[in-house]
Structure formats: C-alpha cells, structure tokens
Design a protein around this nucleic acid. Sequence first.
DNA 1: GATGAATGAGTGTTCATTCAT
DNA 2: CATGAATGAACACTCATTCAT
Lengths: 195, 195, 195, 195
Amino acid sequence: MPKVGMQPIRRSQLIAATLEAVDQVGMSDASIAYIARVAGVSNGIISHYFKDKNGLLDATMRHLMQALSDAVHERRAALKDDSPRAHLHAIIEGNFDDSQVNGPAVKTWLAFWATSMHQPALRRLQRINDRRLDSNLCCQFRRVLPPAAARAAARGLSSLIDGLWLRGALTGEAFDTARDLQIAYEYVDLQLAKV
Amino acid sequence: MPKVGMQPIRRSQLIAATLEAVDQVGMSDASIAYIARVAGVSNGIISHYFKDKNGLLDATMRHLMQALSDAVHERRAALKDDSPRAHLHAIIEGNFDDSQVNGPAVKTWLAFWATSMHQPALRRLQRINDRRLDSNLCCQFRRVLPPAAARAAARGLSSLIDGLWLRGALTGEAFDTARDLQIAYEYVDLQLAKV
Amino acid sequence: MPKVGMQPIRRSQLIAATLEAVDQVGMSDASIAYIARVAGVSNGIISHYFKDKNGLLDATMRHLMQALSDAVHERRAALKDDSPRAHLHAIIEGNFDDSQVNGPAVKTWLAFWATSMHQPALRRLQRINDRRLDSNLCCQFRRVLPPAAARAAARGLSSLIDGLWLRGALTGEAFDTARDLQIAYEYVDLQLAKV
Amino acid sequence: MPKVGMQPIRRSQLIAATLEAVDQVGMSDASIAYIARVAGVSNGIISHYFKDKNGLLDATMRHLMQALSDAVHERRAALKDDSPRAHLHAIIEGNFDDSQVNGPAVKTWLAFWATSMHQPALRRLQRINDRRLDSNLCCQFRRVLPPAAARAAARGLSSLIDGLWLRGALTGEAFDTARDLQIAYEYVDLQLAKV
DNA sequence: GATGAATGAGTGTTCATTCAT
DNA sequence: CATGAATGAACACTCATTCAT
C-alpha cells in the first residue's frame, strides 16, 4: 500500500522495531529480516529508508540520544529553583528517565557501547553523549566549587550515574530508580558540602 | 609426534588470541578463523579444546573474572592494616588492576556485558561477578555502618567503580587510573565519615 | 497537467539515458533506478513506456541499429559515383560514423553482443545487423568478382570492419578513425585488384 | 570428503565449471550458486579457493589467455620453416585453436570483453592480450616490410583475426575455421606481396 | 501521465561446524 | 594431536517489478 509522505512514519516505525528486536534477541541476532518482521514490513524497505543496516542503527542511536537530551532539557526548563543543586538533580533525573531505563533502550545502549569501540561513526556519537553529560555537570559544579574540584566532582557524578545505570541494566530486573536517585543525590550533596 | 600436556598451554594460547582478536576487530568480527590466525593455529583446533566458539568465549570470560578475583585477593592478602578502609582501597585497586584495564580486557568485558543480556550462561557468570564485588564492599562497610547505610554505600561504590571503568573504557585513550582511584577513595571516605 | 505526445520524447530521453548509464557504469550496473536517475525521472516510468527493462534494452539496440543503417544510407545516397568501390567506401564510412564509435555506443554494442548470446530476442536483432552488412558488401563485390570470391571478400571485409571497431573499442582511448579507414580501404583495393 | 592438496584440482574444476556455466546461461546468470552446482560442490568452496567471485573470473580469464598463449607457442616452436610467413600462419592458427573457438570459451571471452570496459583488473589483462598479438604480428611483418607498413599490416591482421573470431562467435553456429584461416592467410600474402 | 513506496526473490559472501586425513 | 577441505545456512544488500495515489 504505497502512500506518499511515509518517510517519517516508516522511520519511526523501523527505529521502534529495532529497539524491540534488540530487546528480544540481542543486537547480534537482530538481523534485518528479524527487524523487518517485527515491524511487519519487507526486508527491502530498510535500505529504502536508511540505505543500509548501519544507517538504521545510526538513526536508532541518535533517537536514544535525542530522547535523553529531551528528558534532561524538559526537567531543567521546568525548574523554578535556579540553584546548582536543582540543576544537578534535574540532570540526574533526566538520565533515569523512562526512555533511558526501559528494557529495549538499556539493551540497545549497551550494545552500542560495545560496538562503538570498533565503529568510528558510532564512537563519535558516543563521545558526544559522554561529553555532554560531563560538561553539563561540570558547569553546575563550577558555580560553587573551584575548577579542579568541579572537574573531579563532574567525573565522579557522571561515572556514578553511568555505573548505577549499568548495574541496573545488568541485573535484568526492573530498575530501582528511587534508590539509585537517592545515591546520586547524596553524592551531589557530599560534593557541594565541601564548600 | 603427540605431545603430552598441551591442553593447558593451548587453552591459554587460544584465550589470549581471543582477547587480542576482540581488541583488534571487535567481538562481532572476531571469527573463529580470525582468532585461529592470531593464535597461529588451524581453525579446527578450537572445537578440539573448547567444543565450540561459545566454549571459547565462556572460558575467556572466566579467565578475566579469575584475573580480577586474583588481583583483589592478592592486594587484600598483602594488607598489614585490617581496617575496613584498607580493605576497600584494596578492592578498588584490584578492580583497576592492569589485567582489567588494558585494551583487550576492556573491550572484551564490554562485549560480554552486552552479549550477556541474551545468553543465560554468560549472564550467570556476569551476576556472580557483580555480586561478588557488591558483597565484598558491603562486608567492609557493615563493619562500621548500619546495614541499610552499608548496603547503599556498597551499591554506590560498586556503581562508581564500574562507572569510572566504563567511562575510561569508552574514551578509547589510556586509563587515568590515578585520578579514578582518587575519586573512588574519596567516596569511601565520605561514606565512612558518616559514622 | 497531462501532456500530449510525450511518448516519443520520453522514449528518446530514456534511450539516451540508457546509453549514458552503460557508458558510466557498465551494463550490469545500469539498473533501472540508475537509468531513471540519469534521465531525471522516476523508476516507475520505464515500465510505463517500455513495459520492462528488456523492452528498454531492446529499444536501445534498435536505436543503435537504426543509426547505423541511417549512417550508411545517407552516405550511399549522396554518392555521385556509382562504382562498387565508392559504395564499399560509403558502407565502411557509415560503420565508423560517430554514432557508432562514440563511447556510450561502443560500450553498449559490446554489452549487447555479449548478452545476445543468451537472449533470443537480442540475438535475432544481432543477426539481422550482421547479415545486412555482409549482404551489402557482397552485393558490391559481386558486381566485379565471381560469386565465391565475392562472398569471401565480403566476409573478410565485414570481419575486418568489426575487428577494427572492436580493437578500437577495447583500447579505451578515442578511435583513430582515419587509420582504420585506410586499412579497410586498402583491403577493398586489394580485393578489387584481383580481377 | 576433505583431502589434502586439493587446491590445483579444485581450481581447475571450478574454472571449467565457470566456462560451462557461462556457456549455458551467460555471464550475468552464471551465479556462484549455479557454477557451484555445475561443479558439483557447495557454494562456499569458491571463496575458499578464489576468495570471491571476482577471483574466480580473474582466474578463468587468465586460464583462457594462457591457453591462447600456449596454442601459439606450440605451433611456432614446431615450425621447421623460420620465414615470417610461416610464423604469421602459426600465430593465426593458434588464435583459432580449439581452446579459443569452442562455445564456452567464445562466450566467456566475449563477456570478459564487455565487462572489462568497467573493471580495471580485467581491462589490464585484456590489454596485455591485445598487445601481445599485435606485437607478435608486427615483429614478423617488420622482417620484410618498412616499419610504418608493418604496423599497419599488424593492426589490419590482428583486427581481421578478431573480427573473424567475433563473427564466428556471434553466428552461434560452429566455426568454419577452414574458411576463416583462408581469409587470414590471404591477407598475409597480400601484405607480404607489397614488398 | 507520473510518482515513489513497497515487495520479495536472488546475489555474493561469511561463518561455525564437521570430519577424513 | 592437528590440519584444512568442505558444507550449508544465514547474512546484508540489490533489484526489477507492481501499484495506490
């Protein structure tokens, strides 16, 4: 049923199918045929919209990054309190947004991380993401801490966020987001208390 | 000329080749043929010693886990000071042992993490590893903190260790182990200071 | 805005695009999508005008044959001298007309020859073409030579023409038409001198 | 039934199957699967011995070239008469050797010619072959003709040979080798008679 | 008349695995 | 013990063709 203007619809549909497929069978078994079957379309359509499988994976990673970016921005935009502490909390919460901690997203992120070590294109995206979090955190810490301390605090907090996320991912069970947030909040307070 | 006792030698040789292959081309391109070429042996030998590729990967993961376990145990055994703080430092240092942060190990660990989400056998190993770290840390924190606080501190520290390791891995550059250790030590001190 | 009389225009446009596509990437990579892109039209239009790809290739071959036929006829019609030698020269020159020795035409002819060995429709066209040249030459030789000698001379000359053309095609450089014409003219003279 | 030292046997077998496949269905339909079926082996074996399809086609072309070269050399080596005329006859006969004018060889040569226009590797082989014939002929003509005339005679004769061969190929019927040889011999005599 | 979305069979290639030697 | 020849299924990708718009 060919229609005009299907491009954005199909692209979203195929990215969603990719996440679902990776969730179900893992990245290495998420073949084009499998993803197409999940999406309920033919194999060939993927090349039509994404040129090749790499294009689809690239778009999927960008989708996850965009969702993370949005989750953080929304929370920060909604803040009434402009304090560093409030911003740091918003950033942390954004990183534990449902778009980031649901099963498919978690498994896909992890697969991307592993893959990115040998794929320059993915690696570039990866580093953009890493640095964005680090720099966001560092900006806030710098408002109250001396530069060196701010940098260390930022690295500590970004690592703690990733670590909590990773541990949550690897358990396979649902995230205990509340507990993880508490641990991260506490780290923020301990760092800010240094002043 | 049949040789006696080749088994342990060949097995180590092939595990080393696997790590090297994953380092060079990534897990998904580390085919049996590639690994065999790196090891300088024929394709068929792998099934001879490990039954199949999965057996080789399983053995490789066990090798990395054993190295981690050894690295921690050695440091704890060498302690003159039996304080929780000393033990926690030893555990942290063991996790940043060279056997864990060198390129091949890092890439292989990451690949195992991603893969383990869909392979029960790998997943089981993964969880044993995770829990061992958590429980080791928790034991020490419990010596000075109330149970709930000890559990939280253990989770925070294990996540921080993994997060630092992960961030180090993803940069692609060499680990700045000294800085990461400082961040982890500080976390220990902040937790112990709660008392 | 439906246009009237687009058929001949579109057909010529698509045949020209086919020649250009074959020149650029070769027959086997000259997909419908590629040809359509060269022509600046949509994929679907080709089946509209030619039913399928075979129809387009068939039309393209007929186009080349017609151009050859025209090139020969024009030259023969313009002759003031009705001698066999003059006619033979005109036929030779027609076969080296620019429409036959330009890059796209050469590559397409060659591809057709190779393909025609396994496609009855193309093969039929091919043989019509071959025989037309042979018969044209034979008619003229017969005016001065006995039948057997005329047949042999015709076969020799037609082969020489094709061979010169082929060698010119395979060098990849521009045709040295003048030299090739000299060689063919000389062959004519040597045959006619037998009388 | 894996055996040791199969390489030369398999390679010959696969080259023969390629020629047969091209003869049967044409180069564009001579898929790896088809060739493997003709050879009675599995698809995968081709990569094992030739890396990829291109490697097989390359080897097949080299095989045809070698056969041509051998056919010419044998005849020239067997000459008792060292005259230019005798050598030229031997070269001509070599070019009409059965290894060159049998159905599979003819169709494969033709396909290679067409393909070589867009494949640098094939083109290089092609030109080596073309020039070898031209230079062989030119050497002999130069023994009795002035340089310019020798060059023209060589180009004429090589073109005539190719043209006769091509015309023979395109008819689809068996070669009338005797007649074609006569035509070529006559051309030699006409050229040598210029002296 | 013209588009381009959609299909699905077919391609070359890779690969883990088996097994005769 | 060890080799490497051989298999065949699975893969990503291409393509001619169809057809609703």
